[in-house]
Amino acid sequence: MNREPYIEQIHQYLSGELDAAARKSFEEALEKDEALKEAFLFEQQLLGALEQSFDQRAREDISQVHQQLRAEGFFSASRGKAGKLSVLRVAAAAAALAALCAGIWWFALRPQPFEPQVAFQQHFRPEEEQAGRIIEGLTSVGFAPEMNPTDSLREALVLYRKEDYPAAFLALSYFLDNHPQNDTAQFFLALTEMSLSNFDSAARLLSGFSNPGNPEMEKEARWYLALCFLQSEGRREDARKLLETLAEDEAFGQQMQARELLGRLPPKD
């Protein structure tokens, strides 16, 4: 049987390209025309098998890339189970080990080459506790017919705290469209972008960040900007300048981290 005349129409039907009227008329023809029906079932099977076969290939390609990266040691730089521990437990354990490790490191081990991604993982904290404090401070007026700005910001920060960053991104962006001067929303949108590895966008938000009423948040913004710069090509010296200022600032809560990171940066070219 010559199926050629049917093929194009069948493919259009299967790929959803036909409009509603053409689709209906094709389905009616399928009911009446045995040859068309036979050709349709054959093409459906063939294209289905083709799709499954390419699915397998895509999985194999991903698996090969995965194995190649494993062989390179790409995954061994991970934090293992550390994420399961609370921040306090990590901090306590880190403090207890710090003195011992520092001695061993200083006398026995050479410094590891600087890896921006690993440095980011070690130093980036999404500030969920700070988000929680802000959420508690945002008092709802409750039962208002429309959502007010306080409710909108609270909802966005709740999404952020739940680590639903894509949803938080939308909610914070929407809020900022209507309240472009809100520094809290701007700060957390930048952290959301960082959590989603969008460092250039985060850096743009943090570069213009200013909050005269909350100098600590301003310093934190500069700290996170430095972390963003370290992830971007050609911005390492900008990061170094920021870190140098923060490392000298006795009033900055993360002064020690800034010093440590600065110490690990390779020397200027």
């Binding site: 890339v65 990266l69 293992g80 550390a82 399961k84 680590e163």
Partner: peptide, 26 residues
């Protein structure tokens, strides 16, 4: 395949952080 590798290199750490924070392991 090179595009897959690029996704790994750029975004694996992001997903790893997510899974670790949500109670998974490496």
């Amino acid at each position: 395949r090179e595009a897959y590798e690029k996704v790994y290199r750029r975004h694996y750490r992001m997903v790893e952080s997510l899974v670790l924070r949500m109670g998974g392991d490496g």
